[in-house]
Design a protein around this nucleic acid. Structure first.
Lengths: 250, 250
DNA sequence: CGGGGTGTTGACGCATGTCAAGTATGGTGG
DNA sequence: CCACCATACTTGACATGCGTCAACACCCCG
């Protein structure tokens, strides 16, 4: 089991010791078929999940309303890391495609963080990037119409997938239904259908058989009012240098 | 300058050493008048802000759209802690009322975290709670109508204010305009005005001269479909016990 | 006493929801 | 290979939540 480090390393290169620690952190690897729950709202899982392969999403169905999807995750993400500090899940985590995940027991995670404090800080940074993305979703849902919201979502998915190397930027594997998209963007299925037709008519995308094609990336970006800064994909993390083992050891 | 620990301690009591470290962390105390920016989108502040007194909010105005308010913060919150790892601000932080804040230079923060790793973890936990709140805002904006969204917002503000002791639960000081509320809930000013009238007509609230009255808390909660679990106000943080200095020292 | 920000109201239009009836599409069993 | 079914997608007609515009009322502050 090899935990993907590509995404973490975008912020700061790992040392050999840190890579080794991740390699030997333990936990089991699990294969899941599409549409199965990994953890459910209300659960208190004793482990943290690292996505190795596939696409997963987080969602919640409030008592009074409809299901809302709140995040999609790509390989290298730790989508329920918060369960380490906030044991009770306030939403569910479900596989969108067939997936491979690593499940790291919390005690192992604690050991990892204690022995490699810089890894802890890199994960903390991941938590903050996650938070930034949710804020952008708030902006998206609160201030844009269905057309822009949908374009923006596709932009985000593309950038995240390109960053971890599962897309070349011109097309992505997106095996979700229009109902899934509707519950993400906060519109009805019927309206999502019409929104997708507009996007197609504008030549911004084509979407069929689970694959999204992006013939004109600049155009799609412009339609969604997309500014990738919030993803912090290549932003530096200056303060952590001081914790590098090399700095202490010589 | 006394950094409020009440909120942090809800998760886990602090040791005397940790309290002392917070007390002597340094940085200056600053007074701000209402409606002044603390940090702006695009800034790379060299410090982290702790709110000591007052109400602040975070917001962003995308190039193509309207201002979106994405968070309100109460005393004890660290609203721009992320600037420690993600230097470039992707949104602005502004005082809603006259405020007192502490500005802790990042190097001091690093020192604090290195010397008191458990404090670092408690702050990491705060980051996760923050993230949880943004997710709930996504649910709120994506799956509820203006009436419920507004009721839900008031519920959240009440609970946060009660938790840190600036409200008794029956009324709160909320000196924001209807335009502010509209930009939070993602509706127009006119519609917010009508929504507030409905809430008043239902007897759920009254709002005037900057004060929100909540005559029937249970009713308001029910109208907003509000479940306070996501605030994690009194949830435990079990894994951190092991880092308590007492456990090591005896 | 005047003026700017804030709150309120009505008329009207558009984005989006709901309902209902289809048409593809893909998987399964005979 | 076909018949069948369930699920997804699509379309039209209509209802409604919400936005926009414009006018006016209120209120604090100078």
């Amino acid at each position: 089991m090899e935990i993907p480090i590509r995404k973490i390393e975008l912020a700061n290169p790992l040392t050999e010791g840190e890579r080794g620690a991740l390699r030997t952190v333990g936990g089991h690897e699990v294969r899941l078929s599409a549409r199965t729950d990994i953890v459910k709202e209300g659960d208190a899982p004793g482990f943290t999940t690292v996505l190795l392969e596939g696409l997963v999403f987080r969602h919640k169905t409030p008592a009074d309303g409809h299901r809302q999807i709140m995040a999609f995750h790509v390989p290298g993400d730790w989508p329920d890391l918060h369960s380490y500090f906030l044991p009770r899940m306030d939403h569910s985590l479900t596989a969108m495609t067939d997936c491979r995940v690593a499940q790291i027991p919390h005690p192992r995670l604690r050991q990892l963080i204690e022995e490699h404090p810089r890894l802890g800080q890199l994960l903390w940074r991941e938590t903050m990037v996650d938070s930034t993305i949710f804020r952008e979703w708030v902006v998206n849902l609160g201030s844009r119409d269905a057309f822009k919201r949908t374009a923006h979502l596709f932009c985000e998915l593309r950038e995240k997938m390109v960053a971890v190397g599962v897309s070349d930027g011109s097309s992505l594997e997106l095996p979700m239904t229009q109902a899934d998209l509707a519950d993400t963007v906060g519109v009805s299925v019927v309206h999502m259908n019409r929104t997708l037709q507009s996007l197609r008519a504008e030549g911004a995308i084509s979407l069929s058989r689970g694959r999204l094609q992006i013939p004109d990336w600049e155009r799609l970006k412009q339609m969604g009012g997309f500014d990738p800064a919030y993803l912090h994909i290549d932003s530096e993390m200056p303060v952590i240098e001081a914790l590098l083992p090399e700095k202490h050891g010589g």
